[in-house]
């Protein structure tokens, strides 16, 4: 069972890894986007971490919604509503069906896809989030799921961007790892590190 204490640890782990990799995310985004992904993600997760005592005191579903709202209000780029929607929907689904984690994750990434009007294989964070859902539903181990996510990030490199700012570059987006896919992996690794 996942509890608020796990979420507290996950928040610390996510904020730490995003902060440590902020320059890398910005460098990836400078190649094919507008170069603000690292700073935006850092601002968002720093704000979540600063609120950890308030957020951590809530039941898991409410705490996840609070994380989502905080990201929406502080990130400032398209990744705010996208990651915000992910956490908001996780919270909403777990409030309705506690402990149906994998089903909640699937609903949450469908909500992210709807928010971004995108789908898998368009060189976005969805290219990582969807294979992870498949692996979770197949009952794969935590290490396997992380491995699936890593391979999925690498897979975005040779893909042409269809959605987001990178799509303006057309074929020139090929050859660069997608920054959103990379930040998704960072979050997945962080969460996997603290979950039971």
């Amino acid at each position: 069972m996942i509890e608020s204490s796990h979420l507290r640890a996950a928040i610390v782990a996510m904020a730490t890894t995003v902060s440590a990799h902020a320059e890398e995310l910005t460098a990836l985004d400078s190649a094919i986007g507008d170069g603000d992904h690292g700073a935006n993600m850092k601002r968002g997760f720093d704000a979540v971490a600063a609120d950890i005592d308030t957020i951590g005191a809530k039941p898991l579903a409410e705490a996840l919604k609070a994380v989502g709202t905080k990201l929406v209000m502080t990130v400032g780029g398209a990744s705010g509503p996208l990651y915000g929607t992910l956490f908001l929907t996780l919270g909403k689904e777990l409030a309705a069906n506690p402990e149906a984690y994998v089903a909640a994750y699937r609903k949450a990434i469908d909500a992210v896809a709807a928010r971004g009007k995108s789908e898998i294989n368009q060189k976005t964070l969805l290219d990582v989030l969807y294979p992870v859902a498949d692996a979770l539903e197949a009952g794969r181990s935590k290490a396997d799921v992380v491995e699936v996510a890593r391979a999925a990030v690498a897979g975005t490199k040779d893909r042409k961007a269809i959605r987001g700012r990178a799509s303006f570059l057309g074929d020139r987006s090929i050859g660069h790892v997608d920054p959103g896919a990379r930040s998704s992996l960072l979050l997945i690794e962080a969460v996997a590190g603290v979950l039971p």
Binding site: G76, G77, G80
Partner: peptide, 13 residues
């Protein structure tokens, strides 16, 4: 216009 710190981007608030 501008992200919550006034840089490039937008702020929902």
């Amino acid at each position: 216009g501008g992200n919550p710190e006034g840089g490039l981007g937008t702020s929902v608030e």
